[in-house]
Simulated scan of single mutants.
Amino acid sequence: MPVKTWDIGVRFTHWTVAGIVVWNLFGPTDQAHRVLGYIAAGLVACRFVWGFLGTPYARFSAWWPTPAHLKDYVRSLAAGKPLHHLSHNPLGGLMAIALWLLILALALSGWLMRLDAFWGEDWPHDLHTVLSIALEVCVCVHILAAIIMSIWTRDNLIGSMLTGFKRDPADKR
């Protein structure tokens, strides 16, 4: 029986930020790029707040990747029997945090590039470029991991971020 895991706020934020990231990584760097970058940062900030106030599976308390959780999860992967999580698994949680921090850092570095104080300076642009490459790598790893884990665990992680439902761990398909 499926379990309602991801609320509409989590799913809306996820897919909207994903769309903005794809647009900003591959689209033109114009006024829309800047505005969309700030919108993405704002949505990440909203998702951060939702991590404290949101529905049970959206809260950090449901999925924060502590060292103990990471250790147990990596051991389960190494044993070939990944632990099932209704919320993010510990590695997925770590990736979510990394993606959010990169998006916020990109917004900050983009804003710095526009300040008069840094006119003619190369480092804000260079930093923005390095951060965007790091975000591209993390996005690719995130997508690949979601596909691999969906196949391995028979738990359609991408589908669950569309529908909001995940497989109940008691369902031993």
Rank of each mutant, 00 (worst) to 15 (best):
V49A: 14
N24K: 00
L43V: 05
G19F: 11
L53S: 12
A40V: 01
G42N: 05
N24T: 09
A58W: 09
Q31H: 07
H33E: 07
T29D: 09
F52Y: 14
T55C: 08
V44A: 08
N24D: 06
V22A: 15
G54K: 12
A18R: 00
A18W: 08
A45Q: 00
W50R: 11
F60W: 14
F26R: 07
T29V: 11
A40T: 03
L36C: 03
P28E: 13
I20D: 00
G42K: 03
W50N: 12
N24P: 03
P56D: 08
F48W: 11
R59Y: 12
F26Y: 13
W23C: 08
V35F: 02
T29Y: 13
G42F: 06
V21G: 02
V44S: 05
W23R: 13
A58S: 15
T29F: 11
V21Q: 02
Y38I: 02
L43G: 04
A40S: 05
I20N: 03
G27E: 05
G19A: 13
F26I: 11
L25I: 10
F52E: 11
P56K: 14
F26W: 14
L36I: 01
V44C: 05
A41D: 00
W23Y: 15
A32V: 14
G51Y: 13
G37Y: 03
A58M: 08
V17H: 06
P56A: 07
W23H: 07
V22Q: 09
W50I: 14
R34E: 10
T55V: 08
